[in-house]
Design a protein around this nucleic acid. Structure first.
Lengths: 343, 343
DNA sequence: TTGTATGCGTTATCAT
DNA sequence: ATGATAACGCATACAA
């Protein structure tokens, strides 16, 4: 192998490898001039300390793993963007893993990460319906882990979430104030914490306004686009709701498509509000009223929490929780007011 | 340190470390029974071969780096999804780097990757206006590199692109057929290859239909949302185009916003077509006519090209080029035909 | 089939 | 301020 390494650089400069090594760390005792000389020569010969050797020696990787259910989702890509930024500022790299909402992949990823590849993990979980005790099997050796958005309630680890209960209450209340009497709640898996919390807000808002709860109006959807299309169309036809609150963005899109097909007018016949991080919600037909989570900040905050642990400023098993605020933005899908500039 | 390693596992089983090591590689001579015994005990003690030690020893990382200009863009998140899938199937992991369209970050990322952290790179470039010869300075030691979508023409390395020229010609032709006489071309940086190629298709289509080319109608936009808003509004007011062809998705969104504000009706007063991977283009107001690139496949193909090199099936400096087809999908932003199911 | 010994490229300790 | 050396955890050539 003719590639450069610390030894060759040392020979080329007539120095020892220790001195070379010192030139690359900040704290070490080294003569300014020699350091300069080394760095110059290093650049010339294109030398960089080998990452794997350093990590082996130092027992850390300066890498964090990010595990998300999906990537083609504005919320997650924005969150990752936030994570990436903070990680880079801290000199860390990020590995990305996509579970496609498959619990088994999540387990595989996590366990394969426990071989030194990453120093910590930031995850939005996929397997709430399954056994998440697998995370405890690592015991004290479990990697530092931070949850964001979709979490496991029973795992003791820091988390970044938004106030989903409050937002859902507010969303439902908004529909009621707009005159809705039969409000459907569309959810992907109502047993998951995120769907559950959001549903509770929905239920409590109904109750506050003494609107009778009709269990049928909780519509449990799937991850398949085709299935959802059928489920939602049936729900709209059979249940005749006058308002829809969707727990995830893509169910709102599916509702729009269904309404186009069924010639149901939004917002006249049906008002729609959704959790969504879509930046072009104002461009939809009609513009979509959203509960928007601060996705980028959530990512940044999750990364910061992780670094607190990695820098030993915090125990990795603490239950610290950061709650950020979502924002309801009212647009035409729930309101008949003429929009400014709208033709 | 009380963590498990190959030595402790060997002691626990009364075997040598080499035998343990062999149990974890497929090719080695090892007794089936002992292998079984080792694997069982390994699982029990939660042992996995240390990634950094293995990589140091084997001089490869089973990791590929993906560098993109931005993440909050449907095209790139879909492409990454494709890359991730193929990488995982091949037992590789992916590192993500976002340049925010900053050439300097790109250079930094690339040079820092040449320390063994990654075995290869898949990149959509950010710095066409700058010197990209930095990639050649690594000479024979340059990491295997595959470009996708935004490429450097003068770097000899495999690439995956779409037929931008043809698509742009087609897009412009479509506008002309819809009756447009003054077609503006919105581009982020017309000197970049992607903007240039797309512009050439535009120009040639104009020429085919003997439409005089007005240089003012090439509108050079920026990366700033606010600046673009002003630039585009001015262009619409001053130049009075009747058609707009935008080279990237977000310029189409900006055009929509501008039209809302200026009360310009799409498609009556202005027809709009854009390169875009937006899955909900049909939901826009009006639904957006797009040239849609097969983003996921582009990512997959790029990953496959890279693996061809990594598996030594192909030289890393070859100029192989994979061209995939984009698809024009006509919707309401360029047509007045009543849309099925549209109320 | 299994064990022994060496080195991958670094950095920390200790000595000079 | 600099150098010699051991160790990080593993995989391979070679020996048995």
């Amino acid at each position: 192998m003719d590639s450069i390494n610390i030894k060759k650089l040392a020979e080329a400069l007539n120095l020892s490898t220790s001195t070379i090594s010192r030139a690359f760390r900040d704290n070490s005792d080294i003569n300014g001039a020699t350091k300069e000389r080394i760095l110059t020569k290093a650049k010339e010969l294109n030398y960089q300390p080998n990452h794997y050797a350093s990590n082996l020696r130092e027992q850390k990787s300066k890498t964090i793993a990010v595990i998300v259910p999906e990537l083609a989702n504005n919320y997650f890509s924005q969150a990752i963007h936030g994570i990436e930024r903070v990680a880079r500022e801290n000199g860390y790299h990020i590995l990305i893993y996509v579970t496609d909402d498959d619990y088994n992949k999540e387990v595989t990823f996590i366990s394969h990460l426990h071989n030194g590849r990453a120093d910590g993990i930031i995850m939005s979980v996929s397997g709430e319906a399954n056994d998440h005790n697998y995370l405890n099997q690592f015991e004290t050796k479990r990697l530092p882990l931070v949850f964001f958005d979709r979490i496991y309630d029973d795992i003791e680890t820091p988390r970044v979430i938004t106030n989903d209960y409050k937002s859902s209450f507010q969303a439902t209340e908004h529909l009621i104030e707009q005159g809705c009497k039969r409000i459907a709640y569309l959810v992907v898996n109502k047993s998951l914490s995120i769907g559950k919390t959001r549903m509770k807000g929905y239920l409590d808002a109904l109750s506050k306004y003494s609107i009778e709860f009709d269990e049928q109006l909780i519509v449990d959807c799937s991850n398949s686009y085709e299935e959802n299309s059928i489920i939602i169309k049936n729900a709209l036809v059979d249940l005749k709701p006058d308002g829809v609150f969707t727990s995830v963005e893509r169910l709102a899109f599916a509702t729009y498509y269904a309404c186009y097909d069924l010639e149901i007018s939004i917002p006249d016949d049906l008002k729609v509000i959704s959790f969504s991080s879509l930046e072009i919600a104002p461009l939809l037909n009609p513009s979509l009223t959203t509960i928007t989570q601060p996705a980028v900040e959530i990512g940044e905050e999750a990364a910061r929490l992780l670094f607190k642990i990695l820098d030993h400023h915090q125990d990795k098993n603490c239950f610290s929780e950061v709650v950020l605020d979502s924002k309801m933005i009212i647009r035409n899908s729930t309101s008949n007011l003429p929009e400014s500039g709208k033709k």
